[in-house]
């Protein structure tokens, strides 16, 4: 498939799903009511539903989904490993730890921004630790090791917080938050996530040429004029900014950053640079679709978005492994 055609199709898909996300929900508004409420501001309850509930939720799905897709593609390209995903470098885990601490201490209940703020702080600390651990000149391998160590540490600390939580309700709060969801988010969340997300996208979008050159390995890429130290710094900070912001507002949503680049890779001729934009669009589409699905499947039970993406993603991933194995003739 032509690359530009693919991008047009994916963009169209995102637009269609975005509109669908605005029109579907438990409030039971007709499409006509929804559109007129959104555009004209007529009809009190409908305006509230559209502008304060559905619109920020759909925007967040695009921001978080695109961040996950883009980060997944960038990390897979850098590590030259199709199994890499945004959670690998430990930023998601650390952001989640920050959020969980905010929930546990009650700060989250006292201030709206305490939870996402703590999560962003967690992501920031993670970046510092990661760069310190992996060293200034280290290669892809040390980054993976540092990321795994950091993820394990953040995971252990999160379990400790759960373990010490004062009552079952607090623990349930934490567990539900960690499943990842876009329900009941407001424009406050959008404005908080937006600058970090955009900054992260900007950093990652500039990595295309370097990631392409890394197809030949680190040594050859560096000899081709790619400054690997700088590339890695931009990668880590970029992933941390947009994925950290995503975790801060939506919790940890898995599999999107793993599956989307994997699905789209054959359609872009496996070129890491082309995969970046395609995966960003694909991630946005997948998260919009999943968020619509949680509203349609179990409208009254608040099915969590992260649960659905994992339920969808894991079998898909198994299928991909099976396909890869068949291609290798084993």
């Amino acid at each position: 498939m032509r690359y530009s055609l693919l991008l047009w199709l994916l963009s169209l898909l995102v637009v269609v799903l975005f509109c669908a996300a605005l029109l579907i929900g438990p409030a039971g508004l007709s499409p006509g009511e929804s559109v007129s409420a959104l555009l004209t501001g007529r009809g009190d309850a409908a305006v509230l539903v559209m502008r304060e509930i559905r619109l920020p939720r759909a925007i967040l799905a695009v921001l978080v989904g695109a961040s996950l897709g883009l980060s997944g593609a960038a990390l897979q390209g850098y590590l030259r490993n199709p199994l890499a995903e945004p959670g690998l470098i430990g930023v998601s885990g650390s952001a989640a730890l920050g959020a969980v601490i905010a929930l546990q201490t009650g700060l989250a209940a006292a201030y709206t921004l305490a939870l996402p703020g703590a999560a962003l702080l967690g992501a920031l600390v993670a970046v510092g630790l990661l760069l310190g651990l992996a060293g200034p000149r280290g290669g892809a391998f040390t980054l993976i090791l540092a990321g795994i160590a950091l993820s394990a540490l953040a995971g252990a600390a999160t379990t400790l917080v759960l373990n010490l939580s004062p009552n079952p309700y607090a623990a349930a709060d934490i567990v539900f938050w960690m499943m990842g969801s876009l329900a009941d988010r407001s424009f406050t969340h959008v404005w908080l996530a937006l600058p970090f997300t955009l900054a992260g996208w900007l950093l990652l979008a500039g990595l295309g040429r370097g990631l392409d050159a890394l197809t030949l390995g680190e040594d050859a890429a560096e000899a081709l004029g790619i400054r690997l130290t700088r590339l890695r710094l931009a990668l880590v900070v970029g992933v941390a900014a947009c994925v950290g912001a995503g975790v801060a507002v939506a919790g940890a949503i898995g599999f999107v950053g793993l599956i989307v680049p994997h699905l789209l890779r054959p359609l872009v001729g496996a070129r890491p640079a082309r995969l970046l934009l395609a995966s960003a669009l694909g991630g946005a589409a997948l998260l919009l679709a999943s968020d619509i699905a949680v509203r349609l499947i179990l409208p009254e039970r608040d099915l969590k978005l992260g649960v659905l993406t994992a339920l969808l993603g894991a079998p898909l991933f198994l299928h991909l492994i099976y396909k890869t194995r068949r291609e290798q003739g084993a």
């Binding site: 030259r80 040429r209 392409d212 050159a213 890394l214 197809t215 030949l216 390995g217 050859a220 081709l224 004029g225 790619i226 890779r265 001729g269 496996a270 070129r271 890491p272």
Partner: peptide, 18 residues
């Protein structure tokens, strides 16, 4: 090292990077 299943032409084209 050839990390991804890119076309031969694409791979040779990486030489133009500098």
């Amino acid at each position: 090292e050839i990390a991804w299943p890119v076309s031969v032409e694409t791979l040779v084209g990486l030489g133009r990077t500098p």
